[in-house]
């Protein structure tokens, strides 16, 4: 009896703690959603929830060419960067996890250094170099730095996943006459797909999140991504503040990622912690 009341009170205690975690995670998100639904007259009421929800801000933002262009830029640039980083990262991670070759430690150390690299230190020289070679304010001009900073993340996560794959299968394939390359293509790659998929999510989120390169290496809506475009939003008139428009844009680029992350929660946790467990 007393043991049972003890577990019940424990459950209630943990339940309360969980509520705190939920509040922590969701309050700023609910607030920005609420702000995007507020109409012109209630925008300045300072209340947490909208009095008369309206979708005005959304219809405005979806008829705004700058935003639509930025959304296309964001999606295109991030997908291409993710794809290239994954191809290069998978090759390198396979080599690091499976093969013995000189310079391996140096490569691991170098990717670690790059993941700690202050991006701002690159912005100045990249600005100058990209202007000189005509990459400034273009998709490739952003894709290049994105790949570079995605690669260390990709190499770590992927090589941690690759170490989990049973060696014997590769050996068996080689015994059956497969070359190392065939063993990679036909045996390891299919087994590695879950890890590659998880890494793809992490890399995509990292690119999607970038702001510094996006505002430094673009100057028009030719390559400007949504986070950068949001900081340039202005109201329809000088007196109209773009608050609701910014909030709506914020919700649009947030909700898909959040749903995606919630859906693949387990994999993402595994991916983010894969290196740390052994570290």
């Amino acid at each position: 009896m007393s043991a049972q009341t003890e577990t019940t009170s424990k459950k209630v205690g943990w339940g309360l703690v969980n509520v705190l975690v939920l509040l922590y995670a969701f309050v700023p998100v609910v607030w920005i959603i609420s702000l995007s639904l507020k109409g012109g007259d209630t925008l300045n009421d300072g209340k947490f929830l909208p009095a008369n929800p309206t979708s005005d801000a959304y219809s405005k933002i979806f008829s705004n060419d700058d935003f639509l262009r930025a959304l296309a830029n964001s999606i295109g640039i991030c997908l291409i960067s993710t794809f290239i980083a994954l191809v290069l990262g998978t090759m390198a991670a396979y080599a690091i996890a499976r093969l013995d070759f000189p310079g391996k430690t140096a490569i691991v150390a170098m990717s670690l250094l790059i993941s700690m690299f202050p991006q701002i230190a690159l912005v100045t020289p990249l600005f100058k170099i990209e202007t000189a070679v005509g990459l400034f304010d273009t998709w490739p001009g952003l894709i290049l730095p994105y790949i570079t900073f995605a690669l260390p993340l990709g190499i770590y996560t992927l090589s941690a996943f690759f170490r989990e794959i049973p060696w014997e299968l590769e050996k068996a394939a080689k015994m059956d006459g497969a070359t190392p390359y065939q063993a990679f293509r036909k045996v390891i790659a299919p087994l590695a797909m879950p890890g590659v998929f998880t890494t793809a999510i992490l890399v995509f989120i990292a690119c999607w999140n970038d702001f510094l390169f996006a505002i430094s290496l673009t100057s028009t809506n030719r390559a400007r991504t949504v986070p950068a475009a949001m900081s340039y939003f202005t109201g329809a008139t000088t007196f109209e503040k773009p608050t609701a428009a910014i909030a709506a844009a914020a919700v649009i680029i947030t909700i898909p990622i959040v749903i995606f992350v919630l859906f693949f929660q387990r994999r993402i946790v595994a991916g983010l912690t894969s290196g740390a467990v052994k570290g």
Binding site: A25, P28, W208, S231, V258, F260, V261, L262, I268, V269
Partner: peptide, 15 residues
């Protein structure tokens, strides 16, 4: 709890 704790991670810093 584990799922909702990922929300801040998933949100763009600028947002």
């Amino acid at each position: 709890v584990r799922t909702s704790a990922l929300v801040p991670y998933a949100i763009v810093t600028v947002v």
